[in-house]
């Protein structure tokens, strides 16, 4: 227990602590074997990949957050994060036409707005040490909402094709004809983040707050930081979801208000 106490004091767990956390990976592998899920390889691959990626990113972060590194480098990294996020969205929502371009626009717009609030209003100083992790949280947390929004919009427009074409046949423009169905899809995509925001602190302890407390910060300060981040993430997800909804509505109809044929992919 002495080891644990010193880890809490310093915020560092060392390689030994990391090794002990693998016990839970072994539990996951064991459960997969027991239940015949055949996910053992997948779990081990994900575990290995995660530590390699994190170590690589850690090395990069050392460079990005050094005081002597110009802050523009951190902002270039933010742009790269937006592009990586768009590629991730595209991989998870292949059936959504043009999703990579839309995801770049949506994630870029939400990141720009949130960064403007955080750094433009001076909530945090414009230094690499703040820019990189905050942008990472904004962009990373937007991916799930973007994927759900894209898939749900395509699903709704595909499933409700008969109703939408009946509306188009009445002379409604495509934006009007699609509105009830796109709205329903966007509500679904955003509801998940709203629920997460509501449950914070009660059901789960978010990462930034946990990290700060483990690193020895005053819990009240940690809570204030986390609350601000949650609000920013909520705004980001909302921006992403709406941009995806508007963009897909334009993308999935022709200029003469016809609904394109869509491929529905089962989840």
């Amino acid at each position: 227990m002495g080891t644990t106490g010193s880890a809490v004091d310093s915020g560092a767990i060392g390689w030994g602590g990391l090794g002990l956390s693998l016990v839970l990976v072994a539990v996951a592998v064991g459960l997969s074997l027991w239940q015949g899920l055949r996910l053992e390889r997948e779990i081990l691959w994900a575990t290995g990949r995660a530590i390699v990626q994190l170590l690589a990113v850690g090395q990069l972060l050392v460079f990005l957050v050094r005081p002597e590194t110009p802050v523009i480098v951190a902002w270039i990294w933010v742009v790269a994060m937006v592009l990586f996020a768009a590629i991730t969205v595209q991989r998870r929502a292949r059936e959504v036409p043009g999703i990579v371009g839309l995801a770049v626009v949506a994630t870029g717009a939400s990141a720009a707005i949130s960064m403007l609030v955080v750094f433009g209003l001076g909530v945090y100083p414009n230094v690499g040490r703040a820019v990189v992790p905050i942008a990472g949280m904004m962009v990373g947390n937007s991916i799930g909402g973007t994927v759900v929004a894209g898939r749900r919009v395509v699903g709704e427009l595909s499933d409700r094709r008969a109703e939408i074409e009946a509306r188009l046949a009445l002379g409604q423009p495509s934006s009007e004809a699609a509105k009830p169905y796109v709205r329903s899809a966007l509500r679904t995509a955003l509801t998940s983040q709203i629920e997460t925001t509501k449950a914070v602190g009660l059901v789960f302890m978010p990462g930034a707050m946990t990290g700060l407390i483990l690193a020895g910060a005053d819990p009240v300060d940690a809570v204030l930081v986390q609350a601000a981040l949650m609000y920013l993430i909520l705004g980001c997800v909302a921006t992403n979801v709406v941009v995806i909804g508007l963009g897909l509505t334009r993308r999935l109809f022709t200029r003469d208000h016809r609904l394109l044929r869509l491929t529905r992919q089962s989840t």
């Binding site: 008969a162 074409e165 009946a166 188009l168 046949a169 009445l170 002379g171 409604q172 423009p173 003469d256 208000h257 016809r258």
Partner: peptide
């Protein structure tokens, strides 16, 4: 197209 569709009604 929007005016055309109001002139040419369709029942599915």
């Amino acid at each position: 197209p929007l005016r055309l569709r109001r002139r040419v009604g369709m029942v599915f």
